[in-house]
């Protein structure tokens, strides 16, 4: 049984979207939009590595147009998606779609490689049905978030007190943490936090978080 989840009326009647497929089009657009949000600033070129069903059916489902639309910052119900190739070309944004085998991942998975003003970025994510997505890797680091809530992604050194200081910054602004996960790759060294909140996160918070000792970078992905 599908069971546990409680639904809103708008989960059943919705999403409002550009067709033809919630998983191949709307979800694809959202994955592109995650990369757009993480790229911070203008994107010069993008390569989409398409896996599984994405690789097989992307033309017929407009997955390519939707992914690129996301990279242009469009939301999943933006009617400009159908013209995203032309719009990208007008903006001088280079794009390419490659069919690949990413191994044991969800059938609707894409790796998005972005070259932008702020450097290179790589996002791996899947469209998991009904327009919902799951991001599983950023710049080679495994993590997990859905973009349904405002999300902070913080890379830091594994040191005592870092988590407490970050949550203090949020609590001072009355921001409630809904979900929080911490990933450590080397004891005392590389670690990541993914924090999903119930409240909107003002962008200036990123600056405050970056001032905290042992934090090397912070990204904000507000709701996708």
């Amino acid at each position: 049984m599908a069971g546990v989840k409680d639904y809103s009326i708008f989960d059943i009647i919705g999403p409002n979207m550009i067709g033809p497929s919630s998983s191949h089009t709307a979800g694809a657009c959202k994955l592109g939009r995650v990369a757009y949000k993480l790229a911070k600033g203008s994107i010069k070129s993008v390569v989409f590595q398409l896996h599984g069903s994405f690789a097989k059916t992307y033309r017929g489902h407009g997955t390519d147009k939707a992914l690129l639309g996301g990279i242009l910052g469009f939301e999943a119900d933006d009617e400009r998606i159908i013209n995203s190739f032309d719009i990208a070309q007008e903006q001088g944004l280079k794009f390419k779609f490659v069919e690949v085998d990413l191994g044991e991942v969800h059938p609707n998975t894409v790796r998005i490689q972005v070259i932008g003003e702020a450097g290179n970025l790589e996002v791996l994510g899947s469209s998991i049905g009904g327009g919902s997505i799951k991001v599983t890797e950023i710049n080679g680091v495994s993590l997990e978030f859905t973009g349904e809530l405002p999300t902070l992604i913080i890379s830091h050194n594994d040191a005592p007190g870092v988590i407490a200081r970050v949550s203090a910054v949020l609590s001072q602004r009355d921001i409630n943490i809904a979900f929080m996960r911490v990933y450590r790759y080397n004891k005392g060294k590389d670690a990541y936090m993914v924090i999903e909140t119930d409240n909107l996160i003002p962008p200036e918070i990123i600056g405050h978080i970056k001032e905290i000792d042992n934090i090397s970078n912070a990204y904000l992905v507000d709701t996708i």
């Binding site: 009647i13 999403p15 979207m17 067709g19």
Partner: peptide, 21 residues
């Protein structure tokens, strides 16, 4: 048809069944 032409629709409950309601 609008859905299949990359037009805007409401999934109700899905895009593939969006015409019925």
């Amino acid at each position: 048809e609008v859905n299949a032409a990359m037009g805007k629709i409401v999934a109700a409950p899905t895009a593939g069944s969006s015409g019925i309601i």
